[in-house]
Write a protein that binds this DNA or RNA. Structure first.
Length: 640
RNA sequence: GCCGACGUAGCUCAGCCGGUAGAGCAGCUGAUUUGUAAUCAGCAGGUCGCAGGUUCAAACCCUGUCGUCGGCUCCA
């Protein structure tokens, strides 16, 4: 046996003259480390703790603090769950069981239909296996042997998975007790390492995601290293449920949906006020950035959609209507109409870049199963704009847009967006050189503003590559909202031209861009981000005057008028209730400013201010309150 | 669109083995005149999503359909 030389992350080296594993290395460093060890990386590759080491290697022990370790833990928990299920349902076959964001799932095929009540039983069996502290062992084996084993076990899905593994790749299984699963690994060394987990839900999922295949039962779960983390995560899920915009939309009387118009929103007065604040702000800020607003028809003859290419690709998603033997389509997007506006004049290169914006109402006949409150609707308004420019201008326009997105998201109370560059998809129009240039322009723009980004390969639109901007909400959830897409194709298809310096006609490049995306969806994100407690500038009702008793009604009305005259969205509570009840109602409606008025205030023409999140603030002049609210609204701060 | 669950008053929900619908909150009326998260009482409110079917009898069983929810798939 040749000696093993191990280099640790701190640069130190250790030599062994016998066979060692990362676990041995960890033990030789300290028993604490060995106890905390979950896996290891060897030359950058994540492996099991009991992987034999050979030669000269860089080893790093993964403890419960490293993100890779959490993945290992969750993956092992998925196996543990499978083992428990197999014990309870011996006929069980398994599909795939990967780690996902925040947890894992495993697809199972069993005869009986699982219900949420079955999950505690499975959890109980899992705990039993944890207590037994079963060793988890990796085994590498030749393809035919693996096939034979899983065929013998009567596991059709695993056989199919093995067949899909490219030749030359190592095939490995992990065994724990009587349970053996096909798996790349790595895993925790023993089931005892798993402690804090929870099985969460069951859902149907097709084998390999195709509805032609059998539907399996997918069980979702999650696992953490500490009880606190698990509880925090479960609490976060509760919080997400509490903040669900569909629930808050009803509770705060913002909007409703009904059967007769599936996926299309009826905005109530409160929701409309939020809408107006959002739209008004974007209108203001894009005005400063050189956009001009236009309005275009909602229903357009089919021929335009044929020329734009949408009819061919997205016909099933378009609503159509007909009149006088002509077929029309309700617009699913605004771009063809914007090109019509562009085309209404002979354009000079001096006019470029021409930025045409529209809060355009679009309809897309989304499959019924995908509808989800405001998040996924069939009718939505985009904060859309199309920038007509030369190819040379793409770079600076994209740079300006990225800065604009940062500015807008910050105003709405979000941090810096995550950016993805989506490049050419398989189905596309346009030559490869054109795509090369477009993708390069986006990369250069990102470099110029110094923004970090990820590549999203093959996810571009059919007409061009795009940048996608996602924001992170207060529960750390990521929402894709903004986008800018280069389009070398549609202006040409729809005959857009401009006269260049050379007096010749040229086809402009078009940039499709949206900051918020769908306003419906963006408002949903805002509602969930703020849990319905909107900052003053977005709050449907910014202030409410609460008279202590009926005899203070007159003064309350007076205060309400003063605030209303200052442009504040204010209400007076006229219910015959005690203040406590009025305050409770105002709190539940998440109104930021409450002005309590009784004898003392009426005498001194003052108000007692109560803040939504800070309680009683004592008395102040009506004008100071008015100024304070106006200042908060004007500055669009989240502070009250 | 696919699979599953669900659909009862404005909202949240009860309603057993099929016997003809109930609560709390909200609303209205009255009493009360209130000082920082729920004053009391009364009243009113439902073709039990919709359409068929089975049955002496259907909120309940069956079929279809629409919608919602959870996933899957999709998202120009």
């Amino acid at each position: 046996m040749s000696s093993v030389r191990v280099t640790l992350p701190d640069g130190s080296t250790r030599e062994y003259d016998h066979e060692v594993t990362p676990l041995d290395v960890a033990k030789s460093i300290g028993t604490g480390l060995a106890r905390a060890a979950v896996g290891a990386t060897v030359d950058g590759k994540v492996v099991d703790l009991n992987t034999p080491l050979a030669g000269d290697t860089a080893v790093s022990i993964l403890t419960d603090r490293s993100p890779e370790a959490l993945e290992i833990l969750r993956h092992s928990t998925a196996h543990l769950m499978a083992q428990a299920i197999k014990r309870l349902y011996p006929e069980a076959c398994f599909g795939v069981g990967p780690v996902i964001d925040n947890g894992f799932y495993y697809d199972v095929d069993i005869d009986s239909r699982l219900t949420p009540e079955d999950l505690p039983r499975i959890e109980k069996e899992m705990r039993r296996i944890i207590k037994q502290n079963v060793a988890v062992e990796r085994r590498e084996l030749p393809r035919d042997e693996a096939l034979a084993a899983f065929r013998a076990a009567g596991d059709p899905y695993k056989v199919e998975l093995i067949e899909a593994i490219p030749a030359g790749e190592t095939i490995s299984t992990y065994g724990q007790g009587e349970f053996v699963d096909l798996c790349r690994g790595p895993h925790v060394p023993t089931t005892g390492k798993i402690r804090h987990f929870k099985l969460q839900s069951i859902a149907g999922a097709y084998w390999r995601g195709s509805e032609k295949n059998k539907q399996l039962q997918r069980i979702y779960g999650t696992a953490f290293f500490t009880k606190e983390e698990l509880e925090a995560h479960l609490h976060m899920l509760e919080e997400a449920k509490r903040r669900d915009h569909r629930r808050l939309g009803r509770e705060l009387d913002l909007y409703h949906l009904q059967e007769e118009a599936p996926g299309m929103v009826f905005w109530h007065p409160n929701g409309t006020r939020i809408w107006e604040a959002v739209e008004g702000y974007v209108r203001e800020v894009i005005g400063h950035h050189g956009y001009q607003e236009i309005r275009t028809p909602m229903i357009v003859d089919r021929s335009l959609w044929e020329r734009s290419g949408h009819w061919d690709k997205f016909r099933e998603m378009m609503f159509t209507t007909e009149s006088e033997a002509r077929e029309f389509a309700v617009k699913p997007m605004n771009c063809p109409c914007h090109i019509q506006v562009f085309n209404q004049a002979v354009r000079s290169y001096r006019e470029l870049p021409l930025r045409l914006a529209e809060f355009g109402s679009c309809h897309r006949n989304e499959p019924s199963g995908t509808l989800h409150g405001l998040m996924r609707a069939r009718n939505f308004v985009q904060d859309d704009a199309h920038i007509f420019c030369t190819e040379q201008q793409i770079g600076e326009e994209v740079v300006a847009f990225i800065r604009l997105v940062f500015e807008v998201y910050e105003t709405f109370g979000f941090g810096a967006p995550l950016i993805k560059l989506a490049d050419r998809p398989e189905q596309r129009v346009g030559s490869d050189e054109v795509w090369d240039r477009a993708e390069a322009a986006l990369r250069h723009a990102l470099a110029e503003v110094g923004a970090d980004y990820e590549l999203n390969p093959g996810e571009g639109a059919f007409y061009g590559p795009k940048l996608e901007f996602s924001l992170k909400d207060s529960l750390e959830r990521v929402w894709q909202c903004g986008t800018i897409q280069v389009d070398f194709s549609m202006p040409g298809r729809l005959d857009a031209t401009y006269v260049g310096e050379d007096n010749a006609h040229h086809t402009p490049v078009m940039l499709h861009r949206a900051i918020l995306g769908s306003i419906e969806r963006f408002i949903a994100v805002l509602i969930e981000h703020y849990g319905g407690a909107m900052p003053p500038w977005l709050a449907p009702v910014q202030a409410i005057v609460l008279p202590i008793s009926e005899r203070h009604r007159g003064y309350a009305e007076q205060v309400g008028r003063r605030l209303g005259d200052a442009g504040i969205r204010v209400e007076v509570d006229r219910h015959d209730e005690k203040v406590g009840a009025k305050i409770r109602n105002a709190q539940l409606r998440k109104i930021p400013y409450m002005a309590v008025v009784g004898d003392r205030e009426a005498e001194e023409t003052k108000v007692a201010l109560r803040l939504r999140d800070k309680g009683d603030q004592g008395s102040m002049d009506i004008d100071s309150l008015s100024d304070r609210i106006c200042a908060a609204v004007r500055s669009r701060t989240t502070e009250l």
